[in-house]
Simulated assay, not measured.
Amino acid sequence: MKRAYSPRDIAAKKWRTLPWDERWSGPFGEPAETASWFICGRSASGKSSFVMQLAKEFCRYGIVLYVSYEERVNQSFQRRMGYLGMNEVQGHFRVITDDTYDELVARLKAPKSPRFVIIDSFQVAHDMGMDYPKAKALTEMFPKKCFVFVSQEKKGEPMGGGALKLRYWCDMKIWVSGYKAYCQGRSINDAGSYFTVWEKGLVQTSNKIQTSNKIQTSNKIQTNENK
C-alpha cells in the first residue's frame, strides 16, 4: 500500500527555492528550484524573449539546456541571444535542436547533466516522440530537475488537448501577453503583478490600445450626434 501523508509529514517537508530578486519574486513568488513551468502566449507577445530571460536567470543557479525544437538555431534565435546578453552565461547555457525523446532522456541521465530543461515548444516536441504522458514522465523521472514547457496558443488557450493537461500538471503557469508575463499558477505572489518582458514594446502596446480606445470613443460620439 502506498504511503499516506499526515499533516505533520507535509508540514515537515522542505524545498530549496529560487533565491531571485524582487523583479522575479514580485510576480512569481519563490518557487522551488525543481518546480515545473508551463509558459503560453500567442505569437509576437514577447513569449520567446521572456523564456530566454528566464533561461538566463536560471543560469545563475545551474546549467540550463534549451531544447529549441521550434525555432532551432535560426537568425531570430541568434539575435535574441545577442540582445539579451547570453554570452554572459557562456558556461551554463547549452542549446540542442533535434534530440528525440529517448535521446533527451539519455542526455539527462548522464553525469553532470543540466538542472534546468526548457522545451520549446511542446507542440513541436510531439514530432520528436513527446506527448503529455511522456512530458509528465520526464518530471517524475528526474525529480531534482526543473522542466519548462513552452506552448503555442490558439484562441487564448494552449494548443492541443495534451498541452491543456500539461498546464494543469505544472506548478508554475505563465501567460505572456503584450510583453507582460503573468503568473496564473499556485505560486502567485502579488495579485495583479507581472514581469515586464520588454519596456519599449509595453509602451508601444499601451499607446496602441489608448489610440484604439480614443478612436472608438470618437466614433461613438459622432454616431450619437448623427442620430
Results as ranks from 00 to 15, higher is better:
residue 219 N to Y: 05
residue 120 D to N: 06
residue 4 A to W: 06
residue 13 K to M: 13
residue 198 W to A: 00
residue 29 G to Y: 07
residue 206 S to W: 10
residue 5 Y to S: 12
residue 9 D to H: 11
residue 203 V to G: 10
residue 21 D to I: 04
residue 109 K to S: 13
residue 168 Y to L: 11
residue 21 D to A: 11
residue 220 K to C: 05
residue 35 A to L: 08
residue 103 E to I: 02
residue 92 H to W: 11
residue 4 A to M: 10
residue 181 A to P: 06
residue 39 I to T: 06
residue 168 Y to T: 14
residue 62 G to D: 10
residue 98 D to Q: 02
residue 62 G to A: 06
residue 47 K to Y: 04
residue 203 V to D: 15
residue 153 E to L: 03
residue 217 T to P: 00
residue 30 E to L: 10
residue 9 D to V: 07
residue 138 L to R: 10
residue 121 S to V: 00
residue 202 L to V: 06
residue 7 P to H: 04
residue 110 A to H: 01
residue 163 A to M: 07
residue 227 K to Y: 08
residue 58 F to Y: 14
residue 227 K to S: 13
residue 80 R to D: 12
residue 70 E to G: 03
residue 134 K to T: 13
residue 126 H to S: 15
residue 62 G to I: 03
residue 155 K to W: 10
residue 54 L to H: 06
residue 179 Y to I: 03
residue 142 F to W: 05
residue 214 K to N: 11
residue 171 D to S: 14
residue 102 D to R: 09
residue 121 S to P: 02
residue 103 E to Q: 10
residue 104 L to R: 01
residue 115 R to C: 07
residue 204 Q to W: 11
residue 27 P to Q: 04
residue 186 R to G: 00
residue 63 I to M: 14
residue 201 G to Y: 04
residue 223 T to W: 10
residue 196 T to Q: 05
residue 85 G to D: 12
residue 52 M to I: 07
residue 185 G to F: 02
residue 13 K to N: 08
residue 138 L to V: 03
residue 224 N to T: 13
residue 162 G to T: 04
residue 214 K to Q: 15
residue 178 G to N: 13
residue 134 K to Y: 06
residue 109 K to Q: 14
residue 153 E to S: 08
residue 69 Y to V: 00
residue 146 C to T: 03
residue 186 R to D: 03
residue 200 K to F: 07
residue 90 Q to N: 13
residue 131 D to T: 05
residue 151 S to Y: 05
residue 94 R to T: 09
residue 44 A to I: 03
residue 127 D to W: 02
residue 123 Q to E: 08
residue 103 E to S: 03
residue 181 A to C: 10
